[in-house]
Design a protein around this nucleic acid. Structure first.
Length: 330
DNA sequence: TAGGCCATCTGGTCCT
DNA sequence: AGGACCAGATGGCCTA
């Protein structure tokens, strides 16, 4: 049976669960039904009928009629499966519908949280939405980059910051971030080759939205690099958040999250943006290479410099943890 | 057409 | 018992 699965949210149509218009077919596509909590209780069918309400007693009559079909069934060991009578089917179906609705809203909550995360990414763009996985990767890189900036006093406009930001990201996402940061474009006073040595580049005014246009890349849709994002960093200088409510960061007062691995080796950063770096001869191991590159951006990618370069798992689990100084409150 | 990404359904498991 | 969470399956949409 073909089931129209859903209508995408935000398109003005109400989402209708397939079960809401299914005609009594409550079995799963492969014909399985849940039996985990449908075991007979001790005391046999009669005892069970006494324990049940009138509705269930009626079911039991149906059960008896149907029960003669498979006498061999009674010889089987283990818990018996209760027959799926109409009443039970309806209850099961109601349970399933409720569970589906809960699961749907749970996933919507998860997506809302992801959307909130997207909105504070340095290259937030409503036209070029980052995929879930790329959002998580970029968020991780962002945290790493900010931590390194705090540690080394590097300016957030530095090339090193950009490189950390782009580690392990797909080519489109890398280009998006680079486009937002305008890295590599000629008249960018903020990008200096000696940034690694701690030379502080001028920061844009707090709260200013800086639109970058990159001559080497197509014009919008690129996101904007909102310098307000750097409030995170600036407010944290000195080790504490300042002038921000806890909710603004929504970290629950936990502080710096544990660092679960080193920044990944550079990945195919477009040569016209950042000088391509050769991977370490020891890393990544060959088996981590994959012939395909994730798309990263799942709306139109036209105009992006998408190469079919090899990629590797950016976060292999075996990499040893690297120390990053935690941010302490004074 | 293949592959990536997505939303949804589903059954299992764990927890309250 | 019911809810939360999870992972697998499925099918639609989109792009290269």
């Amino acid at each position: 049976m073909m089931i129209k699965p859903y209508v995408r949210q935000g398109e003005g149509e109400e989402v209708i669960s397939p079960l809401q218009w299914m005609d009594g077919d409550i079995s799963s596509p492969d014909g399985n039904t849940s039996a985990s909590s449908d075991h007979y209780r001790a005391g046999g069918p009669n005892q069970q009928a006494r324990d049940m309400g009138s509705e269930d007693a009626e079911e039991d009559e149906e059960d008896e009629e149907e029960g003669r079909e498979d006498e061999n069934e009674s010889k089987r060991r283990g818990p018996k499966k209760k027959r799926m009578t109409k009443a039970r089917q309806e209850r099961f179906r109601a349970r399933r519908i409720k569970a589906n609705a809960r699961e749907r809203s749970r996933m919507h909550g998860l997506n809302d949280a992801l959307e909130n995360l997207r909105s504070i990414m340095p290259c937030h763009s409503k036209t070029q939405k980052l995929s879930k996985i790329e959002t998580l990767r970029l968020a991780r890189n962002y945290i790493c980059a900010l931590s390194e900036a705090l540690e080394g006093g590097l300016p957030t406009e530095s090339r090193a910051f950009m490189e950390t930001l782009c580690r392990g990201l797909s080519q489109p996402t890398t280009n998006l971030v680079a486009g937002c940061l305008q890295l590599g474009s000629a008249p960018a006073p903020a990008v200096r080759t000696d940034d690694r040595h701690g030379v502080q580049a001028p920061n844009p005014p707090l709260g200013a939205v800086v639109s970058y246009s990159s001559p080497g890349l197509p014009s919008p849709p690129y996101g904007t690099f909102d310098s307000a994002h750097l409030l995170h960093l600036r407010a944290m200088k000195g080790g504490v958040y300042e002038n921000h409510s806890p909710n603004e960061y929504n970290d629950g007062g936990v502080g710096t999250p544990p660092y679960d691995g080193p920044p990944t080796p550079p990945l195919s950063i477009s040569s016209n943006l950042v000088p391509k770096q050769e991977p370490s001869p020891h890393y990544p191991p060959p088996h981590l290479y994959s012939p395909s590159v994730g798309q990263g951006l799942y709306q139109t990618q036209s105009g992006y410099d998408v190469h079919s370069e090899r990629s590797y798992d950016p976060y292999p689990p075996h990499m040893p943890p690297r120390h990053i100084a935690p941010i302490y409150r004074d």
